[in-house]
Amino acid sequence: MSSGHVRVDHLSITFAGKQGPVTALAPTTLHLAPGSFTALIGPSGCGKSTLMNAIAGFVQPAGGAMTLDNTEITGPSPDVGVIFQQYALFPWFTALGNVKFALKRLGLPRAELHDRAMAALEEVNLAQHAAKFPGQLSGGMKQRVAIARTFAAGPKVLLMDEPFAALDAQTRIVMHHLLTDIWQKHRATVLFVTHDVDEALLLADRVCVMSQAPGRIIRDYALDLPRPRSLRAQADVLLPIRDEIITLLHPTHADA
């Protein structure tokens, strides 16, 4: 079974600007192995979110090709789940209602729909908050609901666009553990966009570094380390990579 294989080949994306088209993503090639966890890191405006939006089917490419399990990606699909930085929960539904929304397309009987939605919330330790509306939840709780909702839809690929950037440091650590646990259970192919080097090193099997705009992937690290990771315990491997990435992200600092 090899599902969740993403192939992005020479993909380029342009946006209409005031003075003609603007290149948001220079031709980029990226293959994601089924069940892998890849972090995509780069300076702001480098096109990492654009690349993610293209794989999500939100943005039409100007050139190149994208496939999921050898099928062309032409638009959003439940095979490709997305976790947004702003959570994107529907505020008019409860936490449970949000998760049910993802399960609706399966056409389950009422009781099973409810049970599966509750089980998904249980997985992110939010069963006791099922009846609350997003407005009544903290940022970390909202993102947990969003994770439960996205996994409930059973995606083969999970795209995460700086999902924890809006959370405080403590909550972020909790979320890292939670995400790692759930991912190891579901084994979707993850593409995790971030600008936090430590986050990338702690979570991913592979870290791709993008250049300044118009972005391209300029470095690709494989990290074969056991989880849960810590920068201190695995310092001899992680710290040199960390220093390299930071230099790559801020080339001007080295010159100054």
């Binding site: 089917g57 939100f58 439940p78 947004f84 993802a102 397309r105 839809a153």
Partner: peptide, 19 residues
């Protein structure tokens, strides 16, 4: 972002419109 979330969760156009 609501429409993006709805579509990537597999909602039909009708369900997206109504809910």
């Amino acid at each position: 972002i609501y429409l993006r979330a709805s579509r990537s969760l597999g909602a039909s156009r009708m369900r997206e419109f109504l809910t």
